[in-house]
Design a protein around this nucleic acid. Sequence first.
DNA 1: GAGTAGCATTAACCTATGTTAAAAACTCAT
DNA 2: ATGAGTTTTTAACATAGGTTAATGCTACTC
Lengths: 172, 172
Amino acid sequence: MELQNLITEQGVRYHFEKGARVFKQGDDCEYIYLVEHGLLKAFYVTANGKETIKSFIKQHSIIGSLNAALCLAPCTFSLEALDTSVLIRFPFSQLLDESKRSITISQEVVQILLGLALKKERREFELLTLSATERFNNLRRTDPELVKKLTQNDIAKYLGITPVALSRIKHQ
Amino acid sequence: MELQNLITEQGVRYHFEKGARVFKQGDDCEYIYLVEHGLLKAFYVTANGKETIKSFIKQHSIIGSLNAALCLAPCTFSLEALDTSVLIRFPFSQLLDESKRSITISQEVVQILLGLALKKERREFELLTLSATERFNNLRRTDPELVKKLTQNDIAKYLGITPVALSRIKHQ
DNA sequence: GAGTAGCATTAACCTATGTTAAAAACTCAT
DNA sequence: ATGAGTTTTTAACATAGGTTAATGCTACTC
């Protein structure tokens, strides 16, 4: 929890209303954000204007663009509040510095990254081996609360299908 | 490179012929493997017998099942040599222990995990937003050498389509 | 309570990819 | 070179999901 304390004490707290953007695809954004509370979506907009949702971010999660942080490149996705949310912003470079100084912080970073990699691995598995119907049932099973809060539109964009297709799936 | 030295010196070296399995989906496997040289594939076999390839693993990469290592659960995928390969096996738990002891090792673990997460994020992006044709063109563009070495079957399984579909894509 | 805006459903048609099976093209050992 | 085994291509048909557009539903405003 040393990391959490560090971020809470030294980071800057921001307030976002539903619909507000934390950062936009293409921005430079060398920060990570700790979600104090609320719900957000991280999403891509493709060249032809199609939106797909990468992940939903809940209370106590940490989110940031690895691409922006690691490669000094622009963010590959946007982050938007789905609900009133409070985030604490902390510079990614400072996180790396601190983790060089303190082994406990470094340990916590390792734990966070392991969890992240595991989550991504699961998602890759689903996208690669399951049908849209199976992915939807999985989501409903593993996080019914989240499904209740989301619009069908956002669920569909997360599953990688259109809202029309999702409606069809729901009715067999 | 301290980590690399540690693994090379204390790990156990194994030799695999083309087609040999390093570990199998369902195994307990609390090790990571450093690929000294060769080429391997990490793949899932679904309940109905369909194979999909999670990733190809090249020289100098580190591979292991996060699920097995972190959750003490069975491996979710199998690892098979596509070419004669030499791997060095090292216990995951020992890696975590060492990283608690040495900040340089911990730093190296962070770097490896960041790289892994970034790779997974890119793959997630591709699976979510690109068509099979676009994914194939991407692969051809970013790693033509790899494409040359693989069978069409394995490329298709990596893209998440059938070899028949890939053949069609190649001919427009 | 009528009007408007935003979501969800339905339907008709289209396209990409799956499935199966057969034919063709390689690859290699003898 | 021959033939066996593997990989790739081709073809015909089936299915999941995309697209568009019309309709229905809910909820909020006035």
